[in-house]
């Protein structure tokens, strides 16, 4: 659990983070969104003390982060940034091994961990381990960057626009991978982005920042139903609201008994995908399969439209 308690950061007369308090549950994904200059990156960097706060405290699992030597604190916390920041003079394997080496892990444990992570990120350890960063594609570099951040088995992973440099197709894949890996390790993730779509796609809770202040900190559904300010509403985009809401829930929640013609859709797919399929194919209903792959019911345009409004 991360407790951010009345934290502020000022550079001279300019306050970039203004009295922000929030509590982040262990094992959750929290996304901090805001325009550039909103203070979201500064807030993130105060957690691993790349920026020292002017006032306030941050406790990680009850321990004040100001009481730990900065470099030791950072070795415990994973950190992934836009443009990956891989060390260009070290191989992929050496890059991933950075923090375990700094922590003095035995070599065989390091090797095993590097291999495990590479496999997890769908990179063949034999082919990719000895490569240098300049021999990787953008998507591969990004994956190695996240693998390096996770190498020392941190409980907490900080990510600053980690997918900012990727093109849309690779970005979507990277986001899916991140969700899978978060599920695998149970890591607490705090991620900064300016992309609302990304926030709604990943977050358990979203924190919206503007001008250094925390405007709203809520679950995506709450935020859609009750945006705290006009700014939050405009950031979500009024025209996008129904679709964002549909995207948050799986098809099975709108499923009703009955039969329908044609290709079925998985109950775990998002309601937005189901609506899109219905609109595009001009059908009134789709068959829905359960976890076992057997058709369990159907979903109709009408039932989806009911879901596209706040309860």
């Amino acid at each position: 659990m991360i407790e951010i308690d009345a934290i502020s950061k000022a550079y001279g007369d300019v306050t970039v983070v203004d009295n922000v308090s929030m509590t982040i549950d262990a094992g959750s994904i929290t996304v901090i969104v805001g325009t550039s200059g909103s203070g979201k990156t500064t807030l993130l960097r105060m957690i691993n003390r790349l920026v020292e706060p002017t006032r306030g405290t941050i406790r990680i699992d009850g321990e004040d982060n100001g009481a730990i030597a900065p470099h030791e604190l950072r070795r415990r916390i994973g950190y992934a940034i836009q443009g990956h920041g891989l060390f260009p003079h070290r191989t992929v394997a050496e890059n991933i091994a950075t923090v375990p080496k700094l922590l003095g892990w035995p070599q065989d444990r390091i090797d095993a961990r590097v291999e495990e992570l590479l496999k997890l990120f769908q990179l063949d350890p034999v082919a990719f381990g000895p490569r240098f960063p300049h021999e990787l594609s953008g998507g591969q570099s990004q994956r190695v960057g996240v693998a390096r951040a996770l190498a020392a088995e941190p409980n907490l992973l900080l990510m600053d626009e980690p997918f900012g440099a990727l093109d849309p197709v690779i970005r979507a894949k990277a986001q899916d991978d991140l969700l899978a890996i978060q599920k695998h390790f149970g890591t607490t993730i705090i991620l900064v982005t300016h992309d609302m779509e990304e926030a709604f796609g990943l977050a358990d809770r979203i924190a919206v920042m503007d001008g250094g202040r925390l405007l709203q900190y809520a679950t995506p559904t709450e935020m859609l139903a009750n945006p705290a300010t006009d700014f939050v509403a405009s950031l979500i985009g009024t025209a996008e609201r129904p679709f964002r809401l549909l995207a948050l829930n799986p098809v099975e929640k709108a499923m009703e008994p009955g039969v329908a013609e044609g290709e079925p859709i998985s109950g775990e797919a998002s309601q937005r995908d189901a609506l899109a399929e219905l609109l595009w194919s001009g059908r009134p209903a789709l068959p829905v399969t359960g976890k076992d792959g057997i058709v369990a019911g159907r979903v109709t345009v009408d039932s989806l439209l009911k879901q596209a409004r706040p309860a």
Partner: peptide, 25 residues
């Protein structure tokens, strides 16, 4: 910039950054 940011972020001390990252680069 991102490399230096990553070097700090991974928890290298000033000396380690100099020896392991800055001078080699």
């Amino acid at each position: 910039g991102p490399v230096m940011e990553a070097a700090r972020g991974t928890g290298m001390t000033g000396w380690q950054r100099l020896i392991k990252v800055e001078l080699p680069l």
